[in-house]
């Protein structure tokens, strides 16, 4: 494992902790898209089916369990928690995320490394992860003002993707090992989706102003 991969994983982990902290400390999930969180829960469950069949390392196993449990916990809080669910911006979270699920599954059935249950679900999870942030970005854009923790959460998620791209470049040139092209292309698309958000995030940071996304 190289430094970029580790930095990516840690940024991802911190993003989840920031989100959990926001929900726990403020007892509020305002600004957070339940649809994006449901997509992430689906991404991790579909991808980590190999938890029971392949052992890679203690690190991988622990991280997989953490990502599955934390994403399910967030969905549970937003749907079931007596106090937290009241702050959910349901009327702003209108992205038709079911379409993403159907399209990604369709693409995974056609484009995969091997037509087996595990590989199709793996490809599905990669495609779905690439677009899972869309409901969240739409919600932020609709609400206009973004609170600090939500802004940091999305920024860290984007940072995780950026580190993964550096990791693939490093692996290609230094380790002479190319990561799977399905991940690489999906990863590039996923990171590109953050470009607009990053632009406004840096602008607000530079001007020391509250993050505001134009409609």
């Amino acid at each position: 494992m190289n430094i970029f991969r580790l930095a990516g994983d840690m940024t991802h982990l911190i993003s989840v902790l920031v989100l959990l902290l926001k929900i726990y400390a403020t007892k509020s999930c305002s600004g957070i898209s339940l649809k994006t969180q449901e997509l992430y829960a689906m991404v991790f469950v579909a991808r980590y089916l190999d938890l029971f069949t392949d052992y890679i390392s203690f690190y991988n196993t622990v991280m997989k369990i953490v990502f599955i449990l934390s994403s399910l916990a967030i969905v549970w809080c937003m749907r079931m928690h007596r106090v937290v669910k009241r702050s959910y911006d349901k009327e702003l979270d209108t992205f038709r995320h079911n379409i993403l699920i159907v399209v990604c599954f369709g693409v995974a059935v056609i484009i995969n490394e091997k037509f087996t249950l595990r590989e199709v679900f793996w490809a599905f999870s990669i495609y779905l992860e690439a677009v899972a942030i869309l409901p969240q970005l739409v919600l932020l854009q609709r609400s206009g003002n973004v609170d600090n923790l939500t802004g940091q959460y999305v920024f860290l998620l984007g940072g995780y993707r950026a580190f993964y791209i550096l990791n693939w470049i490093y692996r290609y040139f230094v380790e002479q090992r190319f990561s799977r092209w399905i991940s690489a292309i999906s990863g590039l698309i996923q990171t590109a989706l953050y470009a607009d958000f990053f632009y406004y995030y840096f602008l607000s940071w530079k001007n020391n102003a509250k993050l505001h996304l134009p409609a």
């Binding site: 991808r47 392949d54 890679i56 991280m63 997989k64 990502f67 793996w122 993964y164 990561s179």
Partner: peptide, 10 residues
């Protein structure tokens, strides 16, 4: 990146 290789990334 041959087929059947383990998915070692998260």
């Amino acid at each position: 990146s041959s087929q059947g290789e383990l998915h070692d990334e998260l």
